[in-house]
Design a protein around this nucleic acid. Structure first.
Lengths: 272, 272
DNA sequence: TCAAAAGTGTTATAGGTACACCCATGC
DNA sequence: GCATGGGTGTACCTATAACACTTTTGA
């Protein structure tokens, strides 16, 4: 049985996103591997799934281990199972590592905690186009995983309450707009944006007594909002370009996109 | 090591959808298990992932084994890894079964092929609401998997070329409309539907010499179309209700929806 | 008083909805 | 002819985009 249906090791990888407000850029946490295999290569944080853990549990644990704080958002993306992607020896057997990837969102600018598995970490900019120009080559198939997750984040902004997950509990309309503008790399009209936001039924709610206000800032003090309820399956803010990725960079990028697509199509003639 | 990072068995489950044109209903293929565990329970088709297969390969193989034809669409949904969902004995060890679910679309009305694992099969109606009223209780966590996949299908109709996957190579505009109306359980205005469809850039293209035409039908002969190119990340047809699931049935259903959501939110206080 | 940030109002246009009407075929 | 299914045209209305304008604060 072990021959036909091989055992495998289940792992998770967490693609930790945050917004760098100084640079106005979406960034992702990468760590330099301090252990074999692929030692000294940059990679996504991740690890094996423990006994009695689900992959969700493991992703949460890993996120906390790496960053020191709880994620404000954690969501499964997809499972990568190529038998050549990562093979380990367990006892006498060689088993493959199957990994499930997660999007994690990291709100505050606290520094991540280094674990024994990593010798270094860095937040890398993830532009909408030409990701591989700003990120080093990654271990295993992590380039693919990163691209898939990045596309998913940009897409989920449109139809889920993901945007507020990049913000603290209390925020202003301008800050939500900043999230959209930063991640989509677009400029939005403030007037129209406010109209749309306040038309999304029940998503955010005005806070009468904001617990804190920033001092020493110029301009009219903003109204503070708090997330109230996240509407399901409703369009929040439409992407003005209609497309998440405006342009393909290369054949390599194109192929990745094909594989990444939400509509992988298999149409194979079967001999009868 | 095996203690901390346990080995597991990787499986796939394929949620095979088709449209029953007589009943105008979305249907899913379930099989009655002929093997332990959970013998005689209805379940989703599935099986273990072989050596050198990816989960995608295994899902394709299973689909062909069960239905006898190639799917016109096959797409990963998510991975279920609860350590209590299914435990098998391999040698002296107990290992859990981790399964990755797939949406498969089945175009033609050919009968599925029975395998040795199943004693019976049946196509069950999947209404937009109250799924569990038309489907028997399923083995393992297959109720959950089925619900997740059904929601995904209804959602993907809106933003992907999934609709044509339920149709033969050559089809009419009325047939695409039937796909949307059947799966969403709505009525759409033919005039406006045509406008929208032909405005989706490059999706479908008119066929000058339709290879076949149905004889013995009344009315004006239709124009035949063929899929040309599937635009990525573009809205095809907007769901007129704005929501995939109009109503929650019960607390049970509500909880499933929560877990199913595309935005599972984890917000846990961590002791520092 | 001016710059900066928040917030409002006004108009033009694109897109969606509703519905009346025309076309080609089988019987 | 007339029922049937395919297909077109148009008027109405709402959502969006563009942009001018007002409000409230700090320096």
């Amino acid at each position: 049985m072990t021959e036909r249906y091989p055992l495998s090791l289940n792992a998770v990888n967490v693609v930790c996103f945050k917004i760098d407000w100084d640079e106005r850029a979406l960034k992702v946490l990468l760590i330099k591997r301090n252990i074999t295999p692929q030692k000294n290569k940059w990679s996504l944080p991740g690890g094996f799934v423990n006994v009695d853990e689900t992959v969700e549990d493991a992703a949460l644990r890993k996120f906390v281990e790496e960053t020191g704080i709880a994620p404000s958002y954690l969501s499964q993306v997809r499972t990568y199972s190529d038998s050549k992607r990562d093979i380990r020896e367990v006892g006498k057997d060689k088993v493959r590592v199957v990994t499930t990837s997660f999007i994690g969102v990291y709100t505050f600018d606290k520094d991540p905690v280094l674990t024994e598995d990593s010798s270094d970490y860095e937040w890398f900019k993830i532009p909408r186009k030409y990701i591989q120009r700003s990120v080093p080559p990654l271990a295993f198939d992590h380039d693919q995983i990163l691209l898939d997750a990045s596309n998913r984040v940009r897409r989920n902004l449109e139809f889920s309450g993901l945007a507020t997950r990049f913000l603290p509990d209390y925020f202003t309309l301008g800050q939500i707009q900043d999230v959209y503008e930063t991640i989509w790399e677009v400029e939005l009209d403030p007037a129209n944006f406010r109209d749309k936001l306040t038309n999304v039924d029940g998503w955010i709610r005005e806070v009468k007594n904001p617990p804190e206000d920033l001092k020493g800032r110029r301009g009219k003090p903003p109204t503070w909002y708090k997330e109230h309820d996240i509407p399901q399956f409703e369009r929040m803010i439409a992407n003005p370009d209609g497309a998440i990725i405006r342009e393909k960079e290369s054949e390599y990028q194109k192929n990745l996109d094909d594989m990444t697509s939400e509509i992988p199509i298999i149409n194979i003639a079967i001999e009868e």
